[in-house]
Design a binder for these strands. Structure first.
Lengths: 168, 168
DNA sequence: AAAAATATGTCAATAATACTGACGTATTTT
DNA sequence: AAAATACGTCAGTATTATTGACATATTTTT
């Protein structure tokens, strides 16, 4: 009973007079599709660079994010990381454990508060983070190629403006 | 045998003289961390708006992307969609089927090539796409609030420059 | 007309990332 | 001593994605 019981061939208009939209959705100019789609495609391609590198080492995007932020803020705690990534403790657990077991990150008990695990990158962890950031940075440089300093400031301001207000 | 065999407490520096980086990764100024991180946070918060709406209707991000692009280009085929989303046919299949079964999208056999399934949004599908786009657009408008037309052009150009070259 | 290519669908198995809820342990604060 | 905190872990589940193989309808090529 396999195969292609291709509904469309039998009934191109199944529910009879169901109204279909053949016109492009414009939102009457009230929706900024240019930016919405620009962000989607930009981000899709932006993360494809590190994805290709990660695929060879058996890691995924979650590992990338962890190794990135630990390198950017050495000594950050697990709680800091959870807050930055906005994921749950359980989601982070496996990824972080794998990075520690593979020698990319190490934990050190907090000097004041010994309940905390302060996270630090090893030399290899630093190298990985840089290797992942490099193609992304090249892509960014290419995008800014013939733009001026004001243009760059506009982009930085825009990206900041897109973010939720910091809670702390 | 449960519980917390907290490695960090026993051996804060497990591999002995393993070098840890306590310094912030700067990339010697060769890596554009400001934009890399700006993009990450901006995108993370940008997709959190529709996520909240989708959660109530039992759909996920994949459904969002499909319903969005079908609305933006009614009559697109399955192949078009695969090319836009850069996912596999199998990944798309379930999501598309659910949207069709729920009455958000309909298929019509291609008038010239009857192998093709041309995809069209129903009225409900159009409404969903607009409802999802609205908070995103509001966020974008807020980000552009006190920026001028040139700033906006810079952002558009930047987002375009971040994308891979079109293959066709 | 037969063969090949194309567009799509489907089955099976699997992986990565994420979630909720509950509970355990070490440590610090009250 | 009790409560709160930081972290880890177990169990179960959901979503999104993957690869590979194969089926069907249709169109194009030979």
């Amino acid at each position: 009973m396999k195969g292609n019981d291709n509904v469309a061939r039998q009934m191109p208009d199944k529910h009879g007079a169901e109204e279909l939209h053949h016109d492009v959705m414009t939102g009457d100019g009230r929706i900024d599709f240019e930016i919405i789609e620009g962000l989607f495609f930009a981000y899709r391609d932006f993360i494809s660079d590190p994805d290709a590198i990660l695929a060879t080492s058996g890691f995924g995007r979650a590992h990338h994010r962890v190794v990135h932020f630990v390198n950017r803020e050495p000594g950050m705690t697990v709680a800091d990381l959870l807050d930055t990534l906005k994921i749950t403790k359980q989601s982070l657990a496996r990824v972080l454990k794998e990075l520690i077991d593979s020698g990319y990150i190490q934990q050190v008990a907090g000097p004041e508060d010994r309940r905390q695990r302060k996270l630090y990158p090893t030399r290899t962890g630093r190298e990985l983070a840089l290797a992942l950031a490099e193609p992304q940075s090249r892509r960014i440089a290419r995008a800014f190629e013939d733009m001026n300093a004001g243009d760059r400031r506009a982009v930085v301001k825009f990206l900041a403006g897109m973010q939720n207000a910091k809670s702390d």
